[in-house]
Design a protein around this nucleic acid. Sequence first.
DNA 1: CCCTGATTCGC
DNA 2: GCGAATCAGG
Length: 179
Amino acid sequence: MEAGLSWTDERVALLRRLWEDGQSASKIAAQLGGVTRNAVIGKVHRLGLAGRAKPGEEAQSVSRAARAPAPVAEIETAIAVVEAEAPEPVAIVAHRPAPAFPPPPSPAAPTALAVSQRVTIMDLRDSMCRWPLGDPTTPDFRFCGARSITGLPYCTHHAEIAYQPATERKRERRVAGFR
DNA sequence: CCCTGATTCGC
DNA sequence: GCGAATCAGG
């Protein structure tokens, strides 16, 4: 199913923008979706984008590129800058800092231990519960994020749901579905 | 342990 | 061309 995502022009343009914006490969991968940070890094190298401008170096690739004949890499850099300056409806989404999903104001939600943190894939750590919350195809998709049981991918709460004994499972009609 | 980019190499 | 595995480093 989720096919169709590859290095389309749009995705490459977005990759360029974010990379030269200083975003890390993993963050870019998360925003692009469907690719790992390795894929991003690999692509970056294939595009000749490796090595980003450091604080102390020239940040005037445009004028420099416009002044004299330049290597392919520099031309590509110039193109990327132009693309970055032009309004780009398709990629603008990437600049939105946070998904701004309603964190329950809940004054009265003193649930037991640290329960659901609702984290995005970006904030999901190895030791965090990977129980999915919501529709993976929408931006509001999150993972539980609570502390997971050592050796298991879920927190105590979700592990109970995930690992119900066959017998119990029958009775416990889908108790707490995917919410 | 968390993370970073770089490189290799089978596909 | 692609990207997982791996490497090297913070």
